[in-house]
Nucleic acid binder design. Structure first.
Lengths: 342, 342
DNA sequence: TTGAAAGCGCTAACAA
DNA sequence: TTGTTAGCGCTTTCAA
């Protein structure tokens, strides 16, 4: 069953160019050791036939796939309609569009992690990008030995301690936000912290603390309440913060909130209690979500460079696949978007 | 260079099971014409060796790839940080996770459309999903003859008239929104329309008009202003709408805005002019963006079932690939989310 | 129902 | 620098 007509093959190119298939292969793959005239003949034949190499055949022979998987935990994609996710994908896709790699988006079913594992180990991809949000997820432990993996966000799992990852510098960002509040003259700066089982929650708390107290040790009376990154939890946290000062004067004149969702909830409660923003309480959020500018007042917040994160993840993985040795940890800087809330 | 050790191959399974490679292949692919005992032996061998078929080899031999491409125009992924996009991808990925297909995310460079074209025609994918936003884009004309394609959103290009597409029923949705305004007792209902080079903009205008005027013919004095789906354009449109009644009483008591971004801008202007929402003007948006509930007042809006759209696109394409004959056009219903703005 | 054998289109020693 | 020649791991006639 020979290929006749239809899609041109390397063999047909060889015939037209009057050289062997091996030579065509060399030319197509940019090998140097080919006579100029032979190369020219091949190029002409390629153009004439409109030849496009078949990636599948190439993969089978070369044992490379030119495919990179981007793995997203199912919970991120369903329960959390996480606004962080889309820009990451875009960043990855954009970075990859300059290369020969193709992006495979994989929703990892947490119900049966072996499916993902087997897929990754089944020779379908050259490497993987994991957007990890969950501390508890152990699915990828050990996988890194067989397949190059780059994590988005520092994995908290200690067994993954030496993994490659790209992360936003959450601590520095939190310091940036808190310092801004100091700069505009606020003296009692509270914090609404996020989940403490994720680096984002932990590091932002630490960053805030280092500016407020000068060191990183927690104090029993510090102005912190904890939420879980949802808007409702931000509202509840603000209520608790306000309730600390029942009767007396307000204990704080500013608050750094670990994400914009919670900040939205906090501002709502502030308004309900008749307090003005930023008059009574200045508010700085984190993420620069799309809705941040539509809040009343527009929210001052730390811009989350999600697309950059995705792009850097891709670059690091590509570098590893190319045999280069990129740094294990890449931290991406952020900047503050100053609007009206602080 | 024979494969020794490492990943188990079909040949190794055949050896262990004591049958030929062809029989193993039949069992693995669920062929019926295999003796029960032979099948059992194969299954045992598969389990023992922890065999996973190599998709690349399978593709080469079968000329199928089990890959579906999701193509996103570059402009969507960069300029517009389109919140519509992420749920679509999620919907597609989720629908595909129940199948053997794998998702290939492709950013289509608009600068050189041949790259995408060649990729699609290069035997890399079995079919493609195109999230099309742009009327001007002719890249995919003719492609549908060589490769099954399903569009997300009705292509406005007339040459694509007989293409398969899945779309939200924009007209019905606009009628839903406008009728709601009628139901709450509003009589003069204005419209801030979106870009008229996209079906979403056109159809929402038509839907509004059919409720307001009873037919679909535009009238010279109708209460419409046009925006381009950005927040700023919504603000400008509202200003123009308000300026129509300089001196006199307000010409309208409600407005249906073609998307939430523009609605946010419109509400801002309303507030700036000292008008209350919904007291003076009731507002209904479209999309149910994440920020819709954080606006002041929380926005009543048409929920855009983007994830469903993605899922249905995938289902239709899979159906086509399976040789079934799904309807060319699929319209997805929407529902209204009633909050405080109307 | 089964196995033998010929590919699928390409890469990669190896020898020339 | 070039061509020859084995494969890569699987599917799929074809004949038995």
């Amino acid at each position: 069953m020979k290929n006749t007509g239809g899609v041109p093959t390397l063999e047909m190119v060889a015939a037209v160019a009057g050289v062997s298939r091996a030579t065509v292969s060399r030319v197509v793959n940019g090998s140097t050791s080919v006579a100029p005239e032979a190369a020219a003949a091949v190029h002409a034949a390629v153009a004439e036939l409109n030849y496009v190499p078949n990636r599948v055949a190439r993969s089978l022979a070369s044992r490379r796939t030119d495919v990179i998987a981007l793995i997203v935990p199912e919970s991120t994609s369903t329960v959390f309609a996480d606004p962080f996710f889309a820009p990451v994908v875009r960043g990855v896709a954009r970075a990859l569009s300059d290369t020969d790699y193709t992006l495979n988006l994989l929703i990892a079913s947490e119900a049966r992690p072996e499916k993902t594992r087997r897929y990754l180990l089944g020779g379908n991809v050259d490497g993987a990008l994991v957007v990890s949000h969950h501390a508890e997820d152990h699915s990828y432990v050990g996988l890194g030995d067989s397949l190059p993996i780059v994590f988005g966000g520092r994995p908290v799992n200690p067994e993954l301690a030496d993994a490659h990852y790209v992360d936003v510098d959450n601590q520095a960002s939190a310091r940036l936000a808190t310092s801004h509040l100091v700069d505009i003259g606020r003296h009692r700066i509270a914090h609404i912290a996020g989940r403490q089982d994720m680096p984002a929650g932990i590091d932002r708390l630490t960053g805030w603390r280092s500016v407020v107290t000068g060191d990183s040790a927690p104090r029993p009376d510090e102005l912190v309440e904890f939420g879980d990154f949802t808007q409702e939890s931000g509202a509840v946290a603000m209520q608790r913060l306000l309730d600390r000062a029942t009767g007396g004067p307000l204990a704080f004149d500013a608050v750094f909130v670990a994400n914009d969702q919670m900040a939205a909830g906090a501002i709502r409660v502030l308004h309900e209690r008749g307090l003005s923003v930023p008059g009574d309480v200045a508010v700085v959020g984190y993420d620069d979500d799309t809705f941040a500018s539509t809040l009343t007042p527009p929210l001052t917040t730390v811009h989350q460079p999600s697309a950059d994160l995705g792009a850097r993840m891709a670059e690091v993985l590509v570098a590893r696949l190319a045999g280069r040795n990129p740094p294990r940890h890449t931290l991406i800087p952020t900047h503050l978007v100053v609007r009206a809330s602080a």
